[in-house]
Amino acid sequence: MTDTPSKSGLEGVIAAAKQAPGRGLPPVHLWNPTHCGDIDIVIKKDGLWFHEGTPIGREALVRLFSTVLRKDPDGFHLVTPVEKMRITVEDAPFIAVRVDKVGDTLKFLTNVGDEVEAGPENEIRVEMDPATGEPRPYLHVRRGLEALIARPVFYELVELAQERETPDGPRLGVSSNGAWFPVGPAGAHVL
């Protein structure tokens, strides 16, 4: 059993996240602390984390915070066994910065070091911006948390895509771990 951190605020988050180094992610989905308010942390659309308007430059600290991030119906929170503090996320909390095709599996790497295999439990979805028509592709990472797929990585997916007939007509899509994900209309990769 772990000791409950005695620190509060940002120090408490750091202490809670450090409790299980090398043992995987903390079980934030099992913790039900009282909401303690908001903390001035913002995850920008480009995946950069800011605290009180200043970029958090230490990658290890961002990784640490990412392990205690949870998405609840009322927003994104950093969670410890004794505290729950809401933060601001402008789009998705993570960015998928790399993809590798290994056999029939697409393996992604996020900007915070998560390795994710696309499949039935970690779906790829693409939203289209109604104003510009530009795609916004996402990958489910864990428990409702998603990564925006970086543009160069999305281009790699489009190159891997194959056309398939769907109820909505022909679509381009990629397969991974037995699941198929549409990534765009047929012919989108032909210039």
Results as ranks from 00 to 15, higher is better:
Thr67Trp: 03
Pro33Cys: 09
Glu90Asn: 06
Pro170Val: 00
Lys45Ser: 08
Arg151Val: 10
Val28Trp: 03
Gly53Phe: 02
Leu30Cys: 02
Pro26Ile: 06
His140Phe: 10
Leu25Glu: 08
Ala92Gln: 10
Gly9Arg: 02
Leu157Glu: 01
Val89Ala: 03
Gly12Met: 01
Gly187His: 04
Met128Trp: 08
Gly75Cys: 11
Gly173Thr: 02
Glu90Thr: 06
Asn111Gly: 05
Gly133Phe: 11
Pro137His: 06
Arg143Trp: 12
Thr67Ala: 10
Pro81Ala: 09
Val42His: 08
Glu11Asn: 04
Lys7Gly: 01
Gly47Pro: 02
Gly75Arg: 04
Val97His: 03
Lys84Ala: 12
Leu109Asp: 07
Val190Pro: 02
Arg142Cys: 06
Gly178Pro: 10
Arg164Cys: 09
Arg136Thr: 13
Ala15Glu: 14
His189Ile: 09
Pro27Gln: 04
Ala118Gln: 06
Asp100Gln: 14
Val190Arg: 07
Arg136Lys: 15
Trp49Ile: 00
Glu90Arg: 08
Asp129Leu: 11
Val62Ser: 08
Glu146Leu: 13
Glu159Trp: 01
Asp114Gln: 14
Asp100Cys: 05
Gly113Thr: 08
Asp104Cys: 01
Asp114Thr: 03
His51Leu: 09
Leu78Phe: 08
Arg23Trp: 14
Thr80Ser: 11
Gly119Lys: 03
Lys107Cys: 13
His77Tyr: 15
Ala188Pro: 02
Leu48Met: 06
Ala92Arg: 10
Asp100Asn: 14
Glu123Ile: 13
His189Ala: 15
Ile14Trp: 05
